[in-house]
Simulated scan of single mutants.
Amino acid sequence: MPKEGHYVTRTGWLRAAVLGANDGIVSTSSLLAGVLAAGMERPVVLLTGLAALVAGAFSMASGEYVSVAAQSDSESADLELERRALEEDPDYELDELTSGLVERGVSPPLARAAAREMTAHDALDAHAREELGLTETGAAAPMQAALASAAAFATGAALPLAGAALGPAGPAGVLPVAALSLAALGGLGLTGARLGGAPAGRAAARALLWGGAAMGATALVGRLFDVAV
C-alpha cells in the first residue's frame, strides 16, 4: 500500500456516492419546486417528495448494479480470453508483454528480462495490468456501487424534503427548498472534490449551476400550469 494514500483507491465508491447524492438533491428538489410552484397542498407535496426519495434510491441502486455488473462481466471475459491465450501461445504473449514494456520506455533487454520475471510470478496478472489496464484497485464492484449510490441518493433527497416539510405551503415554499438544496449541492461539490483531490471551487460551481437550472426549470413549469388541488 503506497504511503501517499492515492485518491484513485476511492473511485469505486466515490463516483457512485457523489452521483447518487447529487441526483437525490437535484431530482427531488426540482420535483418539489415544481409541485410547490403549482400550488399543491402540503400532504401532496410531501407524499410526492417521499415517493421520489424511495423510487430514486432503488432506481439508482439498480442502475449502478446493472451497469457496474456489466463492466465486471466484460472484465471477466477479457481475463478469460487472456488466460486462454497464455495457455495456447505463451511465447507470443511473452513477446507482447515485452513489446508493451519497451513502448513504455524500458530497454529491450531489460524489458525481456522483466517480462520473463513477471510471467513467472503471475502471468495473468501481468497481462491484466500491462495489456488490459485492469488492477485490483480499479476492479468493478457492483454491490459496493449500488449500496453507495442508494444511500447517497436517499440522504441527498431527504434534505429538500425536509425543506418542504418545514417551509411554508404553496409557491412560497420553493425558496426554503431551493436554499437548502443549493447549500447541500455546494457542500457536496466541495466534499467530493476534497475526497478526490480535485479543485473544490470548480466542483462546487458545477453542482450549483446545474442544480439551480433544474430547480428553476421545474418551478417555471409548475407556475405555468398552476394546477392547485
Rank of each mutant, 00 (worst) to 15 (best):
L185G: 00
E131W: 08
L159F: 13
G167D: 02
G163D: 12
R206M: 05
A151M: 12
G133C: 07
G173Y: 00
L124A: 05
R194G: 00
A139K: 14
P168F: 11
E136K: 09
R202M: 09
S149H: 05
A207P: 04
L147D: 07
L134T: 07
A157T: 11
L182D: 02
D125L: 14
T155F: 14
A151Y: 02
A172V: 06
L175F: 14
A151R: 01
F153S: 10
L161K: 08
P142V: 11
A204N: 03
M143W: 14
L182V: 08
A179T: 15
V174N: 09
H127N: 05
G187C: 12
A158Q: 02
G173R: 02
A205Q: 03
P171H: 14
G173T: 01
A145L: 03
G196D: 00
E136M: 01
P199H: 04
T191A: 15
R129N: 03
A128D: 01
E136R: 13
G192P: 10
A179Q: 07
T155M: 14
G156Q: 09
L182H: 04
L188I: 07
P142H: 02
S149Y: 01
L195N: 02
G173D: 06
E130F: 10
A151C: 14
P168Y: 11
L159C: 07
P160A: 08
P142D: 04
L159P: 04
G187M: 09
P168C: 08
R129H: 11
A205E: 06
L185M: 03
A172Y: 11
D125E: 14
A198V: 12
G196H: 00
L182C: 07
L180V: 14
A128K: 04
F153I: 05
A148C: 10
G167A: 09
G201W: 13
L185V: 00
A207K: 01
A200H: 07
A205C: 02
A148W: 06
A169V: 11
G163E: 04
A146M: 03
A140R: 01
P142W: 00
D125R: 15
